[in-house]
Amino acid sequence: MTDQRWPAALAEARLHVVSGKGGTGKTTLAAALALALAAGGRRTLLVEVEGRQGIAQVFDTPPLPYAEQRIAVAPDGGEVRGLSVDAEAALLEYLEMFYNLGLAGRTLRRMGAIEFATTLAPGLRDVLLTGKVKECVGRTVGEDRRGGRRVPLYDAVVLDAPPTGRVVKFLDVTKAMGSLARTGPIHSQSEGVVELLHSSQTVVHLVTQLEDLPVQETLDTVDEIREAGLPMGGVLVNRVRPSRLPATALTGAATGAGLGAGLRSGLEAAGLFLKDEEVDGLVSETVEHAERVQVEAAVRSRLDAAGLPQLELPELTEGVDLGGIYELAELLREQGVR
């Protein structure tokens, strides 16, 4: 099992797309993954595409501009850069590259012309966003001392993608291109995007929690991803809480049967002489916990049946702050992320 959690195929990928149901911690885990992959002196890029400034919030930095900048340093010298891609800026970048608009670009933007153009064809937005991601994955720098070959600037790019409901549509660039002209610079670049997204350089990870709906949505999305011919990566199971109860006590505990009396003497042995309502409170907390553990076991077996690499991240009871991201990154490393 240990080696299956992060198989070679995942280790070789350079573009890690992270999606998940809203509220499951997609951005947090994308950030932790970028940090984990940066360990050992590597350089990674964390990209967001929905203009939410989620990266800045997670790393506690000022809002990111449309430019790659350093947002975190990995413990042993690696580096994470962050980028917030926005479709309008990406379109302007294109226009400037191919049509030399100069300063007028800003005026066009102010007039709403750029927004209008990206709105005219909803597919164009996705093509522009994924196009920028591809450009980052493919960018090379300097020269390899030995072979004189240029090397990729980023060892890995982690994309904080739209949530599960929209992610396959977002990544299905071929379909989006159908609504655009069949020639021209954006078209040819999009062909490169399609190639990258369907190659072994890319993997799509899904973040979930051990609850009914998120797991169902994850399984549905796995099917969609496979149908679209995109390479499925791992499932990142977030906010796993430890089962505190001895396995033998679990079934009984879920009903609350026989918890009270035995519990009281146990508590007294620990020097805790509690009022009845206190003991009742502890019992009801325990019942809730036991019920939840049972639900978790049931959804876990459904998840296991999908046969995907799984990584687990615990619930950080004190909440996720910058330190929490480092903790999660380390836990990912321990489970084989490299």
Binding site: R244, L245, S265, A269
Partner: peptide, 28 residues
């Protein structure tokens, strides 16, 4: 503390678990 006492003295495992649970819950 109670949970630790029970665990150290190999006392009631269920009571120890219940106390750990409660401590988690307070933190959450």
């Amino acid at each position: 503390e109670g949970a630790e006492t029970l665990e150290a003295s190999r006392g009631d495992a269920l009571a120890a678990a219940v106390l750990r649970l409660h401590a988690d819950r307070v933190e959450t």
